[in-house]
Amino acid sequence: MDKKQRRLIMRTSILVLLGAALVFSLYANFTKEKVAAVQKGEMARDFVLTDMDGNTHKLSDYKGQGVFLNFWGTWCKPCEYEMPYMDKQYQKYKDQGVQILAVNVGESNYSVKKFVEKHYLTFPIMIDKNKQVQTAYKIDPLPVTFLIDKNGKIIDKLTGSLSEESIQKHMERIKP
């Protein structure tokens, strides 16, 4: 190899290295908020919570079924708005292999119980008392819904209140 060729290779590799550093920094900088949040396409992180009736729900036990994972709070108006719709669709889809898990972000048993009674909710509702699940799913703000398919993959992340029609569409998406 002659000198000129060596120089070209040397220069090219240094420039490529620096270019890669630049691309990495820009990418990392612009995705730093997204990285902080859980994104669609990721595998849903497993968790265990106990519902208001004392039944334990482990996400990975629902493999083979679709899971409509909703995070909510009693004071949150948009959460309250979509709850009755979720319940209606739950009645329709629970026998078709779609489960709804509604995780309260850690309020008192009293508030959650009153809320459930007020809206006659029938799907499993669990309180994330020590906020571990919402931390793992990086929840902010409410409501947030994760559509998890039968393989445990998050196929979509929905923020804001959902209409009955769109809930039905999303149930279809995760139906196994």
């Binding site: 240094i14 420039l15 620096l18 550093a21 630049l22 920094s25 820009l26 900088n29 612009f30």
Partner: peptide, 22 residues
């Protein structure tokens, strides 16, 4: 300080420092 053009300028300065020194 996290805008794309500012970061590119910083990266270019780093490149310039390295190459000019070599």
């Amino acid at each position: 300080y996290s805008s794309w053009w500012y970061l590119i300028c910083i990266a270019m300065l780093g490149t310039s420092l390295l190459i000019a020194s070599i």
